[in-house]
Design a protein around this nucleic acid. Structure first.
Lengths: 217, 217, 217, 217
DNA sequence: AATGAATGAGCTTTCATTCAT
DNA sequence: GATGAATGAAAGCTCATTCAT
């Protein structure tokens, strides 16, 4: 409980970026905690207000609706997640330099997503939980994936196929099989068993090995 | 839309087993459809009554609470899921006969889970969606997994390790890496893209190959 | 207070026509009283529920929204008002028989509107008060007037102009000058000074004389 | 839209009289516009602040309550309206000189009220709309009418009765029948159809003729 | 004088559940 | 068994008003 999670730093950053009032920060923090713990529909604005130590009306001064509060929590995480695919070194390098092979790329990718999940655990949890119930969010995510992530990933993976490092299977299948174990790793680590002992290094290596053996030539 | 899904047969079975009245069956069917489409919290008993063509009071004659209605939907699916691990041929055979190897077991397992998902799509969808919000259900599932499924699975997999067919990694990691791609396959097929074209045979084979290459020696 | 107003009978009729539950009738009655006394926006559904002796939720079982409750009160009055222009004797007679002159028509018209106001006092009051704030209602009334009432009235008045009984002024001006004193009479009688002593017969006669002298040739 | 209404000059006057700050003037202007358009209860102080371009708190620095803001809008109009009956030439003349007859008085009176409505359209609109809902304002207006306007008007009209220019009917009936068409003219001109084409001269003359014929001997 | 964040009472509306018929 | 009117607690949200800056 008192252990300081790395995502708590992340939330502080968030608060500083947009210069919020202390009360607004409290509201955001309370909402994140409650949404993550009990879900969006199961959390009342009254509860959020109480946990944040503000009047209920204060919530609605800063966020017009409860839904907007949810979006204020998820939007930055989603944007961060997407941004990675543009600026991060590992993508650019994979294509433009030749000294990186498939394994190095996969490891960088896995570590990167792993750290993202560590730093955004509550948002990731909320996103996973709520995605099913908010068709507008589904559409947003779908668009994001199809337009930003899928093409970039494909570009890299096709490159490795041409290098003979990756099996000649249809891209959707490759991506699904590559992502599944990474998601399995991350979700188990941060969502299902966040309090269990984990040898992160070892688990990451095992997962990368598994995918490499499964998909490599 | 009018295509008869295989899980509709499943519901009929359910009615016969417990000899329900037609009204009760209608209620169950309506609840399954709405819970799957909009989630438990987003579905009102009023809506269920309307879709089922019964009075709202009738629902509470058969199910004491709304939660009980949810459980009445999920319980059979969960029991069926578990039952498989006891009675199904593939488990017993895997252990007691020697003519089956790791690949055959894995393929049988994958096909079995795949067909289960096909026949219980709405229940699976509801279970995945709601699990996060109902701690009591989480506990039930956890117990079930730890006491019934995990030990049986371990027994089989240890056997294959002893046969030299399976890498010598810790069991939790093996199970996670084995299950992740199967879940990825099934969720993509029945939840995320249920209406897309799928070559099920091919995708199952690819997935089994992937796991075999990844985990086999 | 204990004097039985004729509009109270009117409300009972209303309740019997659509067969309401007793509670619904109570709600309607309470809403009419409060809307008439304090206005729509100034009356809370909580107040209505209390005066009607029902739970607040009961209101919303019968009327989806507060606005719908307002419409349920006004719609019958508006329809009655319009209906008069189709079925009432005075219109048909004025045109089709020759024994009625302008004065007789005007007197019939005035008495008819006077009695309507007497029997629908609360609804008329509410309509006058709220019309300004509900653009949708404004549009409804405007349409009603332009399509149903104005043409009929014009037909009759043109007839009297051709008979030389009515000044040759533009129709809109005639209608405005004819209606103004009738409205003045009715509003003063039932809205502004409902509790003052009134010699209705005399006031109606004076008003008719006034209009006849003002508009007649 | 951009045409400069005569009541806008009136508002400027208002500002100079009471030497307001520019902010206060903006608030008043915004409140007048919104109250006239949407009604008092339908307009929030937040909206007023936004339209006025001030902080919400600023409104309450100048006006203790929202109600006080309404009164600040209506009071000057009401006072102006009443003042007319004291200082205006047409009243004094009508009584003290003999060269003015009933028709001249009525025409002066009608034109005077017509111009008042033109110059105070928004305030008149607000007054008409809100009068029904504010018993205190009703009382004020009633007192004003009974003590200031009614006696003066009676004095003049009795004078014309004694001159044989006006029918011998009870004063309340005369006043009602005289005022109704003037109100009808004014309300139609400035409230109901402010954007329609109007031949003001003609309509005023028609109305005066109508009343003269109706009430004159 | 001016701000605008904060308040909390009160609003309309929803909904699982009860119960007389 | 079945009904559906009725309930009342709780939900999301609004808004006039206050107050520290």
């Amino acid at each position: 409980m008192n252990k300081r999670h790395s995502w708590e730093k992340r939330i502080e950053q968030l608060q500083n970026e947009k210069n919020m009032t202390p009360k607004q920060a409290k509201i955001l923090q309370a909402a994140i905690e409650l949404f993550a713990r009990k879900g969006y529909f199961n959390t009342s604005t009254n509860e959020i207000a109480k946990l944040a130590g503000v009047a209920e009306g204060t919530i609605f001064r800063h966020y017009q609706t409860k839904k907007e509060l949810l979006e204020a929590i998820l939007a930055p995480a989603i944007m961060d997640f997407t941004a990675t695919f543009f600026v991060d070194q590992f993508i650019a390098d994979a294509i433009h330099t030749s000294h990186k092979n498939m394994r190095e790329f996969l490891e960088a990718f896995t570590r990167n997503r792993f750290e993202f999940a560590r730093q955004n655990t509550p948002a990731v949890r909320i996103l996973l939980q709520e995605l099913a119930f908010h068709p507008d969010m589904q559409e947003t995510i779908k668009q994001l994936f199809m337009k930003k992530i899928y093409p970039r990933l494909t570009k890299v993976l096709v490159h490795f196929q041409s290098q003979g490092e990756l099996k000649d299977i249809e891209m959707p299948a490759i991506i699904r099989m590559m992502i599944s174990p990474i998601l399995g790793l991350v979700i188990n680590r941060f969502i299902i068993q966040p309090h269990a002992e984990h040898d992160d290094e070892k688990e990451i290596r095992q997962t990368v090995d598994f995918i490499m053996n499964g998909l490599g030539k």
